[in-house]
């Protein structure tokens, strides 16, 4: 039961989000529904969120159902979120991989819940800003997200002003973005490194290249333990023994799967597959 009474059917909303994404909406987040679904209510011509959900409940699954699920699972993000992962990327992970992958001159980096694209763009900026030695390498930053609308936005490379205000150094803004009316567009020097695809982490995964670095940050917190285990288990096959997996500050592999070991960076931990010899 909900902590506070609302007029719309939150249980129905929670059920369809859970069924389609395995994401569990907390009852405390009920207040977010009005804000997140407001634009869909207006577009649909419904008088209220209550009416919209009642109509959706009586209809077969369609585009509006999908939009509702996507809107509820979109999360705010910012450029260089939490700073430390990007410090670790710049100071340790990329210098190390620069040596280890010198024979293939190829790097695959995955932003596994790319949302509106800030994480992928931040990774691209770290590379362009600090690693001229990677010029000429085949570098692919793959961004995936469950929401088609988000993936399309990422492909456009467009950011609103309030988004570039968050976490992006002004010097990078003028260096790597062009102003387009009220928005800012990523310059080709970054967007050419990036590729975006729709993907549901809790459903079957498409064929993807083996990854050198995976940002799976602030995603697992939304899933139940079984889904976390499934995702972290599948992730094993995506990683090389020396690849890095980056989780959010409130996330861990501990007590979920036993196949990863923590790598200590300053003020930040990443994960790597356990060494076979240390497993015994």
């Amino acid at each position: 039961m909900l902590a506070s009474p609302v007029s719309f059917d939150f249980d129905y909303l929670r059920r369809i989000v859970r069924e389609k994404t395995a994401i569990v909406l907390e009852a405390e987040k009920v207040y977010l529904a009005e804000a997140k679904l407001g634009p869909i209510v207006r577009r649909s011509g419904s008088a209220s969120l209550t009416d919209l959900l009642r109509d959706l409940r009586s209809q077969p699954w369609g585009a509006t159902h999908q939009q509702v699920v996507e809107a509820m699972t979109n999360n705010e993000t910012s450029f260089f979120r939490d700073l430390y992962p990007y410090e670790a990327l710049k100071n340790r992970m990329l210098p190390e991989l620069l040596t280890k992958r010198a024979h293939v001159r190829e790097l695959n980096i995955w932003s596994a819940a790319s949302s509106s694209g800030q994480e992928a763009a931040s990774i691209a900026m770290v590379i362009r800003e600090n690693f001229r030695a990677l010029d000429g390498w085949k570098i692919r930053i793959l961004g995936t997200d469950i929401a088609a609308e988000m993936v399309n936005r990422c492909k456009e490379g467009l950011f609103a002003q309030h988004e570039v205000n968050r976490g992006l150094p002004a010097q990078y803004l003028v260096k790597y973005f062009d102003r387009v009316g009220l928005h800012w567009r990523l310059k080709p020097i970054l967007s050419e490194m990036m590729e975006f695809r729709q993907m549901n982490l809790s459903a079957l995964w498409p064929n993807l290249p083996t990854m050198d670095i995976v940002f799976l940050r602030n995603v697992l917190i939304y899933f139940d333990v079984d889904t976390k285990r499934t995702i972290l288990t599948r992730m094993k096959s995506m990683l090389r023994p020396d690849s890095y997996l980056l989780l959010g500050g409130a996330e861990t592999t501990l007590n979920i799967v036993d196949d990863y070991e923590r790598v200590d960076f300053s003020k930040f931990d990443a994960y790597r597959l356990k060494n076979r010899s240390s497993k015994a």
Binding site: Q161, H162, N165, A170, Q171, L173, V174, R179
Partner: peptide, 26 residues
């Protein structure tokens, strides 16, 4: 919010630049 203005301010010695309207988080 012009690129030229932002660049000018940074080159003059401003350490960072925030465009209005802003939020507390920004």
């Amino acid at each position: 919010t012009d690129v030229e203005q932002i660049t000018k301010a940074i080159e003059a010695g401003a350490n960072e630049y925030l465009m209005k309207p802003f939020t507390k988080d920004a």
